[in-house]
Write a protein that binds this DNA or RNA. Structure first.
Lengths: 251, 251
DNA sequence: CAGGAATTTGCACGAATATGCGTATATTTT
DNA sequence: AAAATATACGCATATTCGTGCAAATTCCTG
């Protein structure tokens, strides 16, 4: 295990538990306490934590988890999610891609809709745990930890057996010429495959994703059934996409 | 192998694993560490990764994760989980069943173990999101919402392609005569199948599960490699299981 | 096609980094 | 005050790193 990775882990644990204990860390990571103490000393010097006898504490006490989560999901994303959820009809099969925006769709899915939700994101399934009517199909595969989605050959095969009515595609960038893109080749391939297995594909995009391009193209600009954007986006910044033939929905 | 190809491979590996180690790359690609180090140096200059001593990390890996994790697991379950985690050796493939007890294993998995964790529980994957070395394979299928595990034919097929060294089986009841059981027929079938695909099967059981029976048997009493129970359980209540030939471990 | 320039790779070696141990010191607990 | 625990420092050792250099390969150009 890399040293900087270990320090990141200590910080993570500090955020989670509100404290770390030198002895416990040494135990857990199977390293000498000296090493841990050295880490803590250095991180304290970098003002990353507060060193105390026996371990370390966060510099500023953390906010409770729930308020923080509310904060990261912006009002903008909630509006997009609500709009997308309203497009879903009872009886349909919906493929939900990973990502925080699509998690909003799952969270706001009307409780009286009897739908089938397919996803390769375990995070999304968590959002649907308490939905009374949704039937959830989980696509398995090798897990990409940074985006928490299943990938690889197993995922591709499982996806091939699905026919979805709607696919809500998660992307990192949209560009009038370069289309819809994301940062990872493997993920792009998976997403493209899902789109091919779905009758319609919609993209939810917040303002900062417009007119940007990431390394790996998923679909060309006109490859989707619609683009859902916040209603407060300037009209003129949408015209390139309108001209490219993409139906646009304002949420 | 072309240089640019190699660099792409390094990036890919970085995305997949969340880290790369210079030494390991040199070994795998059969190149000198110098070459790898040069690559990493150059890619760091191009802002493609973050160079650290020993290897490299993604640029912005660990945003604070505010997932609510008020671990309300009993001390008893934590002890069982810790014991089970200590049985796992680096390099092994471990199948983790769903359930709160098995979640404890995932949570307490030593951070320096390079293991492959297979699971059909999206909840378990969440516990492993920040493990630096664990490779996570998610088994997909139709999701049982009450226990949050993937089930059905798709899950059965996916499981059949796995060979695990250890399977930690989650159960709801153990009985000297009726064996290991759970409340759902489908789940029982899945669990039995996983056990068949694993070299060893262990069961973690808290006191209240002993001497009880649920409708659907998973395995007979002697069908497992070991039973892990809290050390404060009365010795005499374990003798029926000892007599049935089940190795017992006290955690 | 010949020959020089640029790139790539591996090796040597001193410098930097990481880790564990022993020992002395500081802090907390009893 | 004594015991237990935690800490800091110096030192030894093992990796890992960066640089200079040379050999091999590829590319370019006349």
């Amino acid at each position: 295990m890399l040293t900087s990775q270990r320090k990141a882990l200590i910080l993570d644990r500090l955020r989670r538990n509100g404290q770390v204990i030198a002895k416990a860390l040494a135990d857990d990571l199977e390293l000498s306490e000296d090493t841990i103490r050295r880490d803590l000393r250095e991180m304290a010097a970098e003002k990353l934590l507060k060193r105390v006898h026996g371990g370390a504490l966060p510099l500023a006490p953390d906010l409770p988890d729930f308020s923080a989560r509310q904060a990261v999901s912006s009002e903008e994303k909630r509006r997009l999610g609500a709009y997308a959820a309203s497009m879903i009809k009872s009886g349909q099969t919906v493929f939900l891609d990973g990502g925080t925006t699509n998690a909003e769709i799952a969270r706001q899915l009307p409780k009286n809709l009897a739908v089938t939700i397919v996803t390769h994101s375990p995070t999304i399934t968590g959002e649907l745990e308490h939905h009374p009517l949704a039937e959830v199909i989980l696509i398995g595969g090798k897990l990409y930890k940074h985006s928490m989605v299943a990938t690889g050959a197993a995922a591709m095969v499982a996806i091939a057996s699905i026919r979805a009515d709607i696919f809500f595609l998660g992307i990192t960038a949209i560009h009038p010429v370069h289309g819809f893109s994301t940062g990872d080749f493997e993920e792009a391939a998976i997403k493209r495959h899902i789109a091919q297995c779905s009758a319609e594909t919609y993209v939810l995009a917040t303002a900062e994703k417009l007119d940007a391009a990431s390394p790996c193209q998923i679909l060309p600009t006109k490859g989707v059934s619609g683009l859902i954007v916040p209603s407060d986006i300037p009209k003129e910044s949408l015209t390139p996409y309108r001209n490219a033939g993409v139906p646009i929905f304002l949420a």
